[in-house]
Nucleic acid binder design. Structure first.
Lengths: 254, 254
DNA sequence: TAGTGGTCTAGACCACCGT
DNA sequence: CGGTGGTCTAGACCACTAA
């Protein structure tokens, strides 16, 4: 009769811990503040460190915490909204929020990408490496696969430096007007090279945005961009191709 | 001199394990096949079970494996592409791929949702619960927040059954033509109730799609949909509002 | 060098599923 | 019931950062 939910102790410890910590973050901590270290937190809650870590991992996954080896655990700022639509493809460099070409190689594309490109399996394509920086922080690393056919004017300058050739490829790509673009988003884990660019450890959760750029009835290029899942909120502006506003830039815990 | 990368053994065991397993999955296993259990796999690779589990978790995160308590670990099929755009909002029920209204309550919206709605903090809104099913599998659970002002014709029938009222709200919502929709995607972990609908454990990784439906110059409704991150690939059709095709329905390991 | 988070171990018990 | 994955423990050592 009087038993108010005495049976529901089936809840795992780490899950309960996560809830408690989450509420503490809302009320007792400011953004950027550093938490006590894991060993102390574990002792304070009377659990093993592995259990405490399971809770912290969840909170980091949700973008509430940020952990750095050798430093500590800090309260993360709200996720930054990054626009993923309306031809950011048109900006090459410089601006405060833009893609920065890093380098360019020529090789055959991996199978999943090949399936989206209109090229032969053994035909090498340009692979441009770009980094997206927002508010001083790297948020995404991209591989842009561009068939030679899409940038016919690029034959002679093969021996130019990698970063310069990257810019050339992107510039040439601009000359093709885009007819549209297919896009998909899925969860992934950062490869070693992506992790390095994103200042994360390998295996960190990322949002993989695959974009197929359509031009002249075919696939002009394919982009595979990996966004930091802990710090990013991808925004899409479907409002009738109007100017995209910056919707939820400010959002706080409540 | 002749040392070819002898120093790079800094790679964590679980990371190397993941790579080895991933390649084994590509070559030696078919979709749906069950793997040896964790204790045996750990023994076979000469690592602790916790380490083996770390590798399996990564592979599950990437949608390569599916694990079910009491059953075992199976090879997952390729992720299913689910369209997240172009008014699926217009289908109420029945079709093979659609939202199924489950129930409806009336309460005040949580703070983040409130910030997107044009209502007072204490004003209750309709909260419609819907499930999205694709190919017989539940892929998403949604909470649709609808201010009373958006569905003015709905006053009298308060006492109808929950599922019926859910359908009514959605039907009424259709009468407003949509002017557009803002959408964002971020990583989250499944709440207990969502996890139940999605046939997953609480905390499972999900893609949270937040949509703001615009009508008559204001926000007509806000949808918060949580998609299973392990089985779903969200697709967006930006190709000039054309008919959306079903792009990567077939993709295999290579 | 001291302190942090990241990795790893070798166990134990529990919740769940099918038989 | 036996077997599976899920949770939890109490340690140990390592890689990294900053003072």
């Amino acid at each position: 009769m009087g038993t108010t939910q005495l049976e529901s102790v089936q809840e795992p410890k780490y899950w309960h811990l996560k809830t408690v910590l989450s509420e503490a973050l809302d009320s007792d901590f400011a953004v950027g503040e550093i938490l006590p270290n894991e060993r102390e937190l574990a002792a304070r809650f009377g659990v093993a460190r592995a259990t405490l870590r399971q809770a912290l991992e969840q909170l980091e996954l949700e973008g509430r915490l940020q952990r750095r080896r050798g430093v500590g655990t800090t309260v993360a700022p709200p996720r930054v909204g990054v626009a993923v639509s309306t031809a950011q493809h048109d900006w090459t460099g410089g601006a405060d929020e833009a893609w920065q070409p890093i380098g360019c190689t020529t090789a055959t594309a991996p199978a999943p990408v090949l399936a989206m490109l209109d090229v032969e399996s053994d035909e090498p394509v340009h692979i441009v490496r770009r980094i997206r920086v927002t508010q001083g922080q790297p948020v995404a690393a991209e591989l842009l696969y561009v068939p030679s056919a899409s940038v016919p004017e690029l034959s002679a300058i093969e021996s130019s430096p990698s970063a310069a050739r990257a810019r050339s490829v992107v510039r040439e790509l601009h000359r093709l007007g885009l007819d549209g673009q297919d896009r998909s988003v899925e969860l992934g884990s950062a490869r070693a090279d992506d992790a390095k660019e994103l200042d994360r450890l390998p295996g960190a959760p990322v949002l993989v945005v695959t974009t197929r750029y359509l031009a002249a009835g075919g696939t002009a290029a394919v982009s595979v961009a990996t966004y930091r899942a802990d710090t990013c909120r991808l925004t899409f502006g479907d409002s009738g191709d109007l100017e995209i506003s910056h919707p939820g830039q400010e959002r706080h815990a409540s």
